[in-house]
Design a protein around this nucleic acid. Structure first.
Lengths: 104, 104
DNA sequence: TTTACATATGAATATATAATCATATGAATG
DNA sequence: CATTCATATGATTATATATTCATATGTAAA
């Protein structure tokens, strides 16, 4: 048994939570986050891994960057992206467990 | 230190996770879930609490029901909705902690 | 300093979906 | 059984956003 959350969040908190979920509710962004779990990768590398266009990946990386979920550093001609917020993965773990538990 | 997830999820799992996040990334749906955390409520009651139209709430409740996040039972003229999946709240807790931790 | 390579970005397009409106369905009550 | 109350639902509208296209920016190498 889990104890319930202390009190219903107000509108602003609801909006914040919504934003976080919205960011990681897109399959492309979610895939990028999983790819970056172990090592930093270039835009080209990510695009190749997901079999998507460079531009699409770059756009999504900007979205993730704005949300502080990834960070980037230049290496020669490439930009290397890496996770900026590993805590997000504890959330993802919860959801994975949730999926497992619902497979009965 | 958390140990990483065992392996990158495949496309189908990514899609599943995305769907879950998408469901709870809408402010209205999220608010409904929080409202239902302690007690079951009628559609009218929820609509009044959120100051929204009955129809909008009803539509969102159907979405939540499809996703097995809420269940309903009839009581007279009313329909009482309640949480069907309390496990989702462990995910929400994680996100709340996440927000708290990022307020430094 | 051209040229090639890697990435970023603005505009346009396509698609998804939240809310609204009008109305249907269903239950209780006179 | 007509009326009222509560909810559901299909269609429409409005809006958000993911992707694509064309092109700009930035870096290294010939």
């Amino acid at each position: 048994m889990k104890k319930p959350l202390s009190s219903p969040p107000n509108t602003e908190v609801i909006q914040e939570i919504s934003k976080i979920f919205k960011i990681i509710s897109d399959p492309t962004r979610l895939s990028i986050l999983f790819l970056l779990q172990y090592k930093e990768l270039s835009v080209k590398n990510i695009a190749a891994s997901l079999d998507m266009e460079q531009s699409a990946i770059s756009h999504q990386l900007q979205t993730l960057k704005k949300s502080r979920l990834v960070k980037s550093k230049r290496e020669g001609k490439s930009m290397l992206y890496s996770l900026d917020d590993s805590h997000v993965f504890s959330v993802l773990e919860q959801v994975l467990n949730h999926i497992k538990e619902s497979e009965h």
